[in-house]
Design a protein around this nucleic acid. Structure first.
Length: 315
DNA sequence: ATGGTTTTTACTGCGTC
DNA sequence: GACGCGGTAAAAACCAT
């Protein structure tokens, strides 16, 4: 039995297709996350609550009591909160006058808490980071990493007089790379509403000034898994694509090539071999590369490797 | 800035349904 | 004819220097 495509009855994977670890299920949000590599998979049905949390503070307030300390809140979440429930300690509703007073207290507390502009700016950016992570469906560990990166860049004055969206996009993208989560620069740019080029500039800046060392992009295998997930392709194709990429990994064909294109080629070849033709057009579209690139990668793979019968369709 | 490499764009031809 | 596929030349984008 293979680790890759064991699925439980409701369509959830039970183990991570990337590293094989057991996935942590969050059924309410309709997704599962791998604790070690950050791989995320989605379930079709969303059983989660109907409300949308405006920021992480609100989210924590609503989903659980006593949030853990978190890097993505500007004060680490370590403050007294005045509750929104408008009840007294016996659970009775407050009268209108009292409610107004409590409202004011709440407002003033949140004002004084972010007393100086530095703190307010930080809190602003951190909520932007969370927002962006949420719209990219990124796991919490990426948001935490992004927050961490931004904190140090703020401390090092790198973020000084830089565009806020630019910095958030750059830190989120860097966090993705550090966590090994396969989101492309293009995707992050799209979600943040920025030009790819300017996100890249900010990214290089943060990489150079804050991170100081090169963070390699996610492996081809990660891209394959992602491709299979987004395009809803048979798990057998994924298995084969991963096998192929594994057995050609130590060759030179991948050097300098965009991993997404290579992943698309493996997925395409695998789909053909399994006997489930996926048109190049579709694979290319899902991987956000062109058909030409898919073809070029396919040709290179086929030129350099003899694909033996054991990879062929089971008869 | 620049030069080498990779990806995209745009176009053409071939076979098949 | 529409579609999938394969190829090419040139432009554009990318990256290390």
């Amino acid at each position: 039995m293979s680790l890759w495509h064991t699925r439980s009855d409701d369509g959830f994977k039970t183990s991570c297709p990337v590293c094989g670890n057991k996935l942590i299920g969050d059924l309410e949000k309709g997704e599962q996350v791998c604790p070690s590599c950050g791989y995320v998979t989605f379930a079709p049905a969303d059983e989660g609550p109907e409300w949308k949390a405006m920021d992480l503070e609100e989210k924590n307030k609503r989903v659980r009591v006593g949030a853990p300390t978190t890097l993505s809140l500007h004060d680490f979440g370590l403050t007294t909160e005045i509750s929104r429930t408008m009840r007294d300690s016996h659970g009775r509703y407050l009268d209108p006058a009292m409610r107004a007073t409590v409202e004011k207290m709440r407002k003033w507390q949140s004002r004084t808490r972010t007393i100086n502009s530095e703190e307010r700016g930080l809190s602003n950016v951190l909520s932007k980071i969370n927002e962006l992570c949420e719209s990219l469906n990124l796991p919490d560990n990426v948001a935490e990493t992004a927050a961490q990166i931004y904190r140090t860049s703020a401390k090092m004055k790198v973020a000084k007089s830089k565009s806020i969206i630019g910095m958030t996009a750059a830190t989120v993208y860097l966090a993705c790379r550090k966590c090994g989560v396969s989101r492309t620069l293009k995707e992050v740019a799209r979600a943040s509403g920025m030009e790819k080029g300017s996100v890249a500039r900010y990214f290089r800046l943060v990489l150079k000034e804050v991170e100081k060392e090169y963070v390699p992009p996610p492996s081809v295998e990660k891209y394959i898994s992602k491709l299979i997930n987004t395009a809803k392709i048979d798990a057998r194709v994924e298995h084969l694509a991963l096998k192929l990429s594994g057995s050609t990994a130590d060759s030179k064909i991948s050097s300098g090539k965009a991993p997404a294109g290579l992943a698309a080629a493996y997925v395409y070849l695998s789909s053909v071999m399994i006997g489930q033709h996926i048109p190049q057009r579709e694979v290319a579209e899902a991987a956000e590369v062109t058909e030409v690139t898919v073809r070029n990668r396919c040709r290179e793979i086929l030129d350099n490797f003899v694909i033996r019968q054991e990879f062929g369709p089971a008869k």
